[in-house]
Design a protein around this nucleic acid. Structure first.
Length: 456
RNA sequence: GGCUGAGUGGCAGAGUGGUUAUGCAGCGGAUUGCAAAUCCGUCAACGCCGGUUCAAUUCCGACCUCAGCCUCCA
């Protein structure tokens, strides 16, 4: 298994710290708004990664946090005139609905910042004791200069950052790159601390929650690529300064989702929520669309792309039709090997998917030659490989017929009338029936004497 | 301006020092009352300029272009 590690900038052979156990932490949501498809892209990527690691018998401990204390949460709750906890509760429920609708597996634990304030305070105390943090007038800061390796993840030097003119000058800080560990001057959401009432700064909660759940050093830490800097860089600094040990072995970052060739983000207000996306596409189509590019590449969200994804997925399901593949017979073929080779090369899902289509071609040929035993076995293998990716979970009949307004009986009746008309060579009537069904989103396929239908 | 990454056929998207990616669309064929759908076959590509090499889309260097990050972001 090879995984691209942001720290080293290359693919590395993956070796867990403890035999086949994988301890993995993924930065989750800050909950103050609806989830959008950029989130779907990131969390479905990690969903795929966890699914795959488990499928090859790794014991994965998958932790994904919730950040439920933050400036924006407070601002939004004031805007809506509700308490922050009400806001975060609503957002968390809504997030769970969305993620479930997308068919994501649940993390093994979903710790929340507000439930880990003690750990956070304890980390900050240690940092101050060790001279890596200092208490200023308004806040407690981490001293970036005190960590020699600061910048090792995002590959930037402290000096370079000073020349970047976008760091605001704050006289309270010793170094402009220093960041807040504990915000003292606050109203509303606050906890007692040795430095007075206040709340944690951004990055510290992830250090606390990840180390609480997985230990001081763990295998994989992941998140969207926009978290590389400053969030993950700061997490490394805090954590390694506290423990003196390496924090996470492998850092994984997902590419950003773009829309109209522009990054989708809150500040640009060009985001599409998961709920909106699911109005237009099924969750399986959405998943297929997202995994048909590599998790590290940027991906442009578009109607055309979604349409292509649907057509491609239809092709997979089509190959399964008219087969009875509920068989225990598993003949690991050359395809399985190719599929796993692709996935073990840094989770190359597009390449793995191409293997699925090679199988489709083979299945279709076998069907044509009436070699059904062989076709069934291959179809069964196609399904189990696809299932690893979280696709091809339905049976093809359901897939092609669900979500239609007309009842099955009505449709069958119309088909019968049409076929009778065809027999009597009354093509005017038969075409009329066909067009009426088409208006209901139903496509007819004449297969010999039988006619089957699909939704369009 | 700094850092990181990327530029592949009409589109999407993998990969490789010499041999078909794959999907969508197109084209040809099979099938059909005709369509549709389906199946089969098929065309087509590696940003630009140098270098290394018997051979480069693949390695090296320059250039151009694009994206992400440098500010909250998944």
């Amino acid at each position: 298994m090879k995984i691209f590690n942001t720290l080293s900038g290359k693919k590395e052979v993956f070796e867990p710290i403890e035999d086949n156990k994988v301890r993995m932490y993924v930065c989750g949501m800050t909950v103050y708004d609806d989830t959008h498809i950029g989130h779907a892209r990131t969390f479905l990527s990690f969903d795929l990664i966890v699914r795959y690691l488990r499928s090859i018998n790794y014991e994965v401990q998958y932790i994904r946090n919730i950040t439920d204390v933050d400036d924006k949460i407070i601002a939004r709750s004031e805007e809506l005139n509700i308490s922050p906890s009400e806001l975060t509760k609503d957002c968390i429920n809504s997030m769970h609905d969305d993620f479930q609708a997308l068919g994501m597996i649940s993390p093994d634990a979903e710790p929340r910042a507000t439930e880990n304030i003690d750990s956070i305070i304890s980390l900050i105390t240690k940092l101050i004791d060790k001279g890596h943090a200092y208490v200023s007038e308004s806040d407690v800061y981490f001293s970036t200069e005190s960590f020699e390796e600061y910048g090792k993840l995002s590959k930037r030097k402290l000096e370079d950052m000073l020349s970047g003119a976008r760091i605001d000058i704050d006289l309270d800080k010793k170094n402009p790159a220093d960041f807040v560990l504990w915000k003292k001057d606050t109203e509303g959401l606050k906890w007692d601390s040795p430095w007075g009432p206040g709340r944690p700064g951004w990055h510290i909660e992830c250090s606390a929650m990840s180390m609480d759940a997985l230990g001081e050093t763990f295998d994989i830490h992941g998140g969207g690529s926009d978290l590389k800097f400053p969030h993950h860089e700061n997490e490394i600094a805090q954590s390694e300064c506290v423990t003196g040990k390496e924090f996470a072995k492998v850092w994984m970052h997902t590419g950003s989702l773009r829309i109209d060739e522009q990054k989708m983000s809150k500040s640009l207000k060009n985001f599409i929520t998961i709920k909106e996306a699911l109005d237009d596409s099924s969750s399986e189509v959405l998943r297929f669309f997202l995994i048909s590019s590599h998790y590290r590449s940027p991906l442009n969200y578009s109607d055309e792309g979604l349409k292509e994804a649907k057509n491609s997925l239809d092709r997979l399901y089509n190959s399964l039709q008219d087969l009875s593949y509920e068989t225990d017979e598993h003949i690991p073929s050359e395809y399985s090997e190719k599929f796993h080779d692709a996935m073990q090369d840094d989770f190359n899902s597009p390449s793995a998917i191409s293997v699925l289509f090679e199988m489709v071609k083979q299945i279709n040929l076998l069907k044509k030659e009436d070699q059904l035993t062989h076709a069934n076995a291959l179809a069964s293998e196609l399904i189990s490989l696809s299932n690893i990716l979280g696709i091809l979970l339905e049976n093809p009949e359901e897939y092609f017929t669900s979500g239609i307004n007309l009842s099955n009986e009505d449709i069958e009746q119309l088909i019968e009338r049409r076929n009778k008309a065809r027999q009597e060579k009354d093509f005017e009537l038969s075409d009329k029936i066909r067009n009426e069904l088409l208006k209901e989103g139903i496509i007819l396929e004449d297969k010999g004497t039988k006619t089957i239908w699909k939704k369009s």
